[in-house]
Design a protein around this nucleic acid. Structure first.
Lengths: 125, 125
DNA sequence: GCGCGCGTTCACTAAACAATTAACAGTATG
DNA sequence: CATACTGTTAATTGTTTAGTGAACGCGCGC
């Protein structure tokens, strides 16, 4: 009947990071432009995490990785959907092909993508 | 300098495809589980496109590409967000790295991802 | 000219989402 | 004890989303 581990959930890591930075709930709420009440509820996970753009400002203010925190919040960083839609079938296919790859493998692939960018640049015009 | 066809919009292509298949509005509405009213409005773009899952059943029923139609609807195919969140920083980094690549380059990358999958498979156990 | 199926228009709504206000209890400081 | 913080709770709010139902006008067959 014991409660699950204080999880690596959005609310939990937010409280940890905020306190570690020495911001009071009220002060930090003001910094990010929400009510103290709401921030309290978010940290306790009584409500869903804020919107992607607010998560972004939170992460920035606390010096945390925006993508990581946005994922913790169950959201998608705002620039990604448009990237996907820019090649509506190829990018989804790529994503499904990379499912399950290790972080290292993903970085390898990212490096290869950057190589392709250079090839493209040199060839155009 | 004639006007481009911007009518590669969701509502427009839906109407075309539906009519091409010989389905009446009422009948097709019933097939996908919405009111004729709503389908009419969607096709005329008086309202936003339906949710991703409904777009998926529509595309399937009409024999169209689900990812492509989902993008047309301004939505994201439902399996993608979880793939992204499975490696919360690496996948977004990869996506930003592939922004602007041509479809061919994207397919090359997808093939490389599949190679990496095989390597992973053979090494585990 | 009656019923039938066609697509359309108007008005409305249930639920979800993102957040607020007001009031509260505990702790520490002067 | 007063006041000034801390975080918490309950109730409620405004907005957006994703639709629905009733009624309308049009043309077709009989």
């Amino acid at each position: 009947m014991s409660k699950r581990k204080p999880d690596r959930s959005f609310g939990h890591v937010l409280r940890e990071a905020r306190v570690a930075k020495g911001f009071s709930l009220r002060k930090f709420a003001q910094m990010i432009g929400v009510s103290p009440t709401y921030l309290s509820q978010v940290e306790q996970e009584n409500v869903d995490p804020p919107t992607a753009d607010r998560v972004q400002t939170i992460a920035e203010l606390l010096g945390e990785n925006v993508d990581e925190w946005t994922a913790l919040a169950g959201r998608l960083t705002e620039d990604l959907p448009d990237i996907i839609r820019s090649s509506p079938t190829e990018v989804p296919d790529l994503l499904r092909a990379v499912r399950g790859l290790t972080p290292e493998q993903l970085r390898t692939l990212t490096a290869q993508a950057e190589q392709l960018q250079k090839q493209g640049k040199s060839r155009e015009k």
